[in-house]
């Protein structure tokens, strides 16, 4: 632990933010395991990919701002990158699942709602 001169409030804030973000991401993983159908499970990891990620990124930015003594929010890159890529992966995955359901099982789960 190399935290040199972190003010008390900042140390506590960084810790709580990281803990909250990790907690949300953990909840997402719990959802991934507990939901019953694939389409419900797709929603779960977005918890960690949105707010969970944002909280941890903010914690990291806050910490390094104080430790390095200057404002260089590198971690925002991860935030932007993840916000742009998560929808792409999830949409592709959902479409792949839909395609497989339609062809393999001959069952269209979307048909009833039209």
């Amino acid at each position: 632990m190399t935290s040199v001169d972190l003010p008390a409030w900042a140390a506590v804030a960084v810790g709580l933010l990281a803990l909250a973000g990790a907690g949300l991401s953990f909840l997402g993983a719990v959802g991934l395991c507990s939901f019953r159908t694939f389409y419900e499970r797709v929603h779960a990891p977005t918890l960690g990919a949105t707010l969970g990620m944002a909280l941890i990124v903010v914690a990291s930015v806050l910490f390094f701002t104080f430790v390095e003594g200057r404002f260089m929010p590198r971690e925002l890159l991860i935030g932007v990158f993840l916000t742009v890529t998560t929808p792409v992966t999830l949409i592709l995955l959902a479409r792949a699942a839909l395609f497989r359901d339609r062809t393999e099982r001959g069952r269209d789960e979307t048909a009833g709602d039209a």
Binding site: L6, A8, A11, V12, G15, L16, A18, L19, A22, P45
Partner: peptide
């Protein structure tokens, strides 16, 4: 004191994330 809180919080966060990886 605040350093200890930070360390505990980070340990907790890492444990939660590791557990999340295990669940996934």
């Amino acid at each position: 004191m605040s350093q200890a809180i930070l360390l505990w919080c980070l340990t907790g966060a890492q444990a939660l994330l590791a557990a999340a990886m295990a669940l996934a």
